[in-house]
């Protein structure tokens, strides 16, 4: 027999998921954004099955001619590069890299930022002082140069691209969550939890965290969007991982080929993907912003 306690927990989990879906579904833009993210995620998961060619395979058209620098057609829906690579295949596999980098660095940075914000805000005092001065130092770092130097030092590897992004973007989420934590910890329900015997750990993660969750999800979406943009910028400047292909990397190849003025299709598809995904994330985060900030709520 399933215990009644477990049943109640499962019921609350289900209701919470329904609630999140309701938040996203409440607004047509965030609903659109949500489905765009779902489609990109599916493309990333099944990329090798979807891509008709290898990204670095020279392709030939149905008449057997070498297909270099072809505009979009039925055969090559997104055209080809000057070396005869199929851009659709490249784009599909690049989605995988970009999403991997975006999701990993976005999530790691929000986990670091949230914990630093919660701990600094809750304990205050010296600990807060040290952690916040650390974020201040990071605020002094210029974004792209820092990443370029880091990658130049450690090499053009996916792990280092992620590391570099994470090191920079957790700072904003940490600050915002710290501020929210400070305001929540003064509320009476926190005193009540203490009076009922809850430990500091429990108060931070069970009582304060759910109250900063909308803000946290908002910043998670921002961080993912920022990671994608940063990765694209770094790749475009030639500091991406040389072994894999990403949207920014595709634009870098275009730049290297010198065909920027001729091959508009080469430019179009990765740019549109970057814009579409980043805007979708912003749309979804807007829905959470309304929950996090009651003044934006319509009643």
């Amino acid at each position: 027999m399933v215990s009644s306690h477990l049943k109640r927990r499962l019921k609350y989990l289900r209701l919470a998921l329904v609630e999140h879906y309701r938040i996203i579904n409440a607004n047509p833009l965030s609903r659109f954004g949500f489905w765009v993210i779902v489609v990109f995620t599916l493309v990333a998961l099944f990329a090798p099955l979807i891509a008709p060619y290898d990204p670095w395979e020279m392709v030939y058209d149905s008449e057997g001619n070498f297909a270099a620098l072809q505009p979009p057609s039925w055969e090559f829906p997104m055209g080809t590069t000057h070396l005869g690579y199929d851009l659709f295949s490249q784009l599909v596999l690049a989605t995988r890299t970009t999403l991997l980098i975006g999701a990993t660095s976005g999530l790691i940075s929000i986990i670091i930022g949230a914990n630093i914000g919660l701990i600094a805000g809750y304990y205050g005092g010296k600990l807060d002082e040290v952690l916040m001065r650390l974020t201040d130092i990071l605020y002094g770092m210029p974004f792209l140069p820092f990443i370029i130097v880091l990658i130049a030092l450690f090499g053009r590897k996916l792990e280092f691209v992620i590391l570099a992004i994470v090191l920079i973007i957790w700072r904003t989420s940490a600050r915002v969550i710290r501020a929210q934590t400070i305001s929540i910890k003064q509320r009476q329900f926190i005193a009540m939890a203490k009076a009922r015997g809850a430990s500091d750990f429990r108060i931070i993660y069970k009582h304060i965290l759910p109250n900063v969750l909308p803000l946290l999800l908002l910043y998670a979406a921002f961080n993912i969007a920022w990671s994608i943009i940063t990765e694209a910028s770094a790749s475009f400047l030639g500091f991406g991982d040389g072994e894999t292909i990403s949207w920014g990397g595709m634009l870098y190849e275009l730049w290297l080929s010198g065909k920027t003025r001729v091959a508009w299709w080469w430019f179009a598809s990765p740019s549109v993907c970057i814009i579409l995904l980043v805007t979708s994330l912003v749309f979804v985060s807007r829905a959470y912003e309304e929950v996090a900030n009651p003044r934006l709520r319509k009643r």
Partner: peptide, 26 residues
């Protein structure tokens, strides 16, 4: 002000016993 707005009523009442692990979940 004294009730956590993101807790359900059963969770609020269960908070003390859960925090101090007084009894099992059921």
């Amino acid at each position: 002000e004294s009730l956590n707005p993101r807790f359900r009523i059963s969770e609020i009442v269960a908070e003390g016993p859960t925090a101090l692990s007084l009894w099992d979940g059921d």
